[in-house]
Design a protein around this nucleic acid. Structure first.
Lengths: 225, 225
DNA sequence: AAATAGAATATTGTATACAATTATTACATA
DNA sequence: TATGTAATAATTGTATACAATATTCTATTT
C-alpha cells in the first residue's frame, strides 16, 4: 500500500481527502501522523504538508500539541457554508452567462438529459449530476478566486451524502431553468434563479437539522469533559 | 532577530504575511527557505508550514522543485476577487443586520465619525477606517466560513495600497447608509447597499486597469524572459 | 566574442533523529 | 472500590542530514 509519485504530499492529500469525503475516516477521528505515514510508506514531513492542505479546506482540524482530527460538520457551519455557496454561485453563474461556450452549454444540458421525463429516478445518479452541475458552474466561470473555496464544495458534498435534500421532481425544472437563462445570456435572471434554487435547499437543510438525521449534531470540537 | 514563541509556524506566518502586505517582500520575489530560516533562527520545517498557510491565502505561490514566490497580483484575479467580495459582503451584512449588538454598532459608527463633515481628509487614515469597516462586517456576521476567505482581504488590502479607489466624499455617505440600514435591521436594504458600494469600486478598479473581465487571457506567473 | 556543454553550487524534497509535550498505565492510599 | 499521583509510553514539534533537482559558473569550441 505504498505511494510513489512526483509530488508526494499532493497524492497523500488527495487520498486522505477522499477517505474523509466517503466517510472512510470518520468525523472526530484522530489522524496519527506516524500511523498514516507508516501505512503509506512515507515520512511525516510530506504528510504534514497534506494535513495542512486538508486543514485549509476544513476537512481536518489541528489542535496544537494534540494532533489532527477529522472535522465534525457543525450545523452552524453548514448553514454558513450554504449561505456563502448561494452568493458565490450567483457570482459564478453571472459570469458564466457572459462567457460560456457551445460545448460547455451542451455539457450542462447533457447532465440532466437522462432524468427528463423519467418517473423513477436513481437518487445516487441524480446527486452526482447535481453536484457536477454546480461544480461546472464554478469551473466555467473561470473565476480563479472561486477555485479557492473548496471548503464549500467539501461541506456540501459531505452533506449530500446524507441523501437528497429535495426531490428531483422539484429541483430538475429549476436546474433546467438556470441552464436556459444561461443560454439566453440573461445573467441577472440566471443569478436570481440559482440563488433561489440554493435558498430553497438551504431552508430544507435547516428544517431537517431540527431532527439531526445522519449523525450530524451540534457538537463542540474535540473538547473533553 | 530571532523568534521564539509557542507556535513557531504561526508567528513566522504572521511575520511573512505582514512583510508581503507592506511590500517589504516584493511580488515575484523568491522566498528561499534556508535564507529566511537562518534569518529567523529556525529550521526549515516550521517555515514550510508557514509557507503553506501563505499559499492558501494566495500570498505566495509554489512552483514544484523551484520554490515559493510572492504572488504577483494578476488583474483578472483582482476582478475575480472583487466580484466575490461583493457577494460575500452581501451575505455577511445580511446576517449582521439580524444579530448585531449595541457595542458592535457603535464601533462601526465610530470608525467614520472622525471624517464626517471634514473637508480635507487624510487618505491613509480613511483607507484604514474603510478596511476596518469591511473586515468588521465579516467578523460581526459570525459566519465561520467567511473567515476562511482571507484571500479576498489580502487581495483588496494589497490593491488599496495603490491609494484610494474612490474619494471619501463619494464613499463616506455610502458607508453611513449601510450602517444605517444595519441599525434599522433592514437586511435586504443593507445587502443591496453594500453590493452597490462594492460594485462601484469594482468599476473604478476595472477602469483604472483598462481591462475587461471578459475576453481576458491567463498570464503565467514568474515566467522569465 | 557568443554559444554551448559540463562541472560546481545552491536549493528544494524527503527521511531520520531528538526534544518537548501529552496521554496512558500502574500503583499506592484513603 | 475509587481516587490521586508518579512512571511509562505514545505522539507531536523541531532540527539536522542526505538525496534529488535546479541554477549558476566556467571553460571550451566555433
Amino acid at each position: 500500500m505504498e505511494i510513489e509519485f512526483q509530488d508526494l504530499s499532493y497524492e497523500v492529500y488527495k487520498r486522505l481527502k477522499n477517505m474523509i469525503l466517503v466517510n472512510e475516516l470518520l468525523p472526530g477521528e484522530q489522524l496519527k501522523q506516524e500511523h498514516i505515514a507508516a501505512r503509506l510508506g512515507i515520512s511525516r514531513m510530506p504528510l504534514h504538508k497534506a494535513f495542512q492542505m486538508l486543514e485549509n479546506e476544513m476537512l481536518v482540524e489541528n489542535l496544537p500539541r494534540r494532533g489532527f482530527f477529522v472535522t465534525r460538520i457543525d450545523n452552524n457551519q453548514l448553514i454558513d457554508a450554504f449561505e456563502c455557496r448561494e452568493a458565490l454561485e450567483g457570482v459564478a453563474v453571472r459570469r458564466v452567462s457572459q462567457i460560456i461556450g457551445k460545448q460547455e452549454l451542451a455539457y450542462l444540458k447533457s447532465l440532466f438529459k437522462p432524468f427528463i421525463g423519467k418517473t423513477n429516478i436513481d437518487d445516487r445518479k441524480y446527486i452526482e449530476a447535481d453536484q457536477e452541475f454546480h461544480n461546472s458552474i464554478l469551473k466555467f466561470s473561470r473565476n480563479e478566486i472561486l477555485k479557492k473555496f473548496e471548503v464549500i464544495r467539501n461541506i456540501t458534498y459531505r452533506t449530500y451524502r446524507g441523501g437528497l435534500i429535495r426531490a428531483p421532481k422539484e429541483t430538475l425544472p429549476e436546474h433546467l431553468a438556470i441552464i436556459d437563462a444561461i443560454e439566453q445570456k440573461d445573467a441577472v435572471l440566471a443569478e436570481r434563479l440559482i440563488r433561489e434554487h440554493s435558498g430553497k435547499s438551504q431552508k430544507c437543510i435547516i428544517e431537517k437539522l431540527g431532527t439531526s438525521p445522519n449523525g450530524v449534531e451540534p457538537v463542540l470540537h474535540h473538547d473533553k469533559k
